[in-house]
């Protein structure tokens, strides 16, 4: 095996730029390539691994984060396009170390099993409840239609969201 020359690697790597991202209320300067998705940057540059890659093609919802309060798929969002926006990840939901009522409800109602969908699920539900404090069962199902879960059958997830809604 030959050793790769630094020069070739440079050429292959493409150009990086530094961008400012506001994540969970904090500003970060991060080196990115234009092609990097927000998910790549959150997970690999900022070590915020709460957002998961379940498919990479926008079908499972495990990578859901909030951009300006709205749920988006980080795997289909360009990091360079997220400059100047407020990005909230699951790590920012219990920022002060105190679980949100929704996070607590997910635990108490058995809405978490393997946990892989939980981050995205909680963020989708957080966005729903901030738009609509009293969503109907159908509203909840609609809000979660892009968050797949294979463990729970969704029953206890919906129950958890309804329990928080009832308290509002």
């Amino acid at each position: 095996m030959k050793r790769g020359s630094a020069k070739t690697l440079e050429k292959e790597k493409g150009s990086e730029k530094i961008i400012a991202l506001t994540v969970n209320g904090e500003d970060h300067l991060v080196p990115v390539e234009d092609r990097d998705t927000l998910l790549d940057v959150l997970r690999n540059r900022l070590s915020l691994t709460g957002a998961k890659e379940g498919c990479g093609t926008g079908e499972c919802g495990s990578c859901t984060v909030l951009v300006d309060g709205k749920p988006v798929l980080a795997c289909l969002t360009l990091a360079v396009g997220a400059v100047g926006k407020e990005i909230t990840t699951i790590e920012g939901i219990a920022a002060s170390g105190k679980l949100s009522p929704l996070q607590k409800a997910f635990i108490d109602h058995g809405a978490v099993q393997c946990g892989f969908c939980s981050s995205g699920m909680i963020l989708s539900a957080t966005a729903l409840l901030s738009d609509n404090a009293k969503p109907s069962r159908q509203d909840i199902q609609k809000a979660l239609e892009g968050n797949l879960c294979r463990c729970t059958g969704y029953n206890k997830i919906i129950e958890a969201i309804e329990s928080v809604k009832d308290k509002k």
Partner: peptide, 16 residues
């Protein structure tokens, strides 16, 4: 009893 791994999983701390 709520699951003991709940807090790690709802905060994104749980490492897969």
């Amino acid at each position: 009893v709520p699951r003991i791994d709940g807090p790690a999983k709802v905060t994104g701390e749980a490492k897969y």
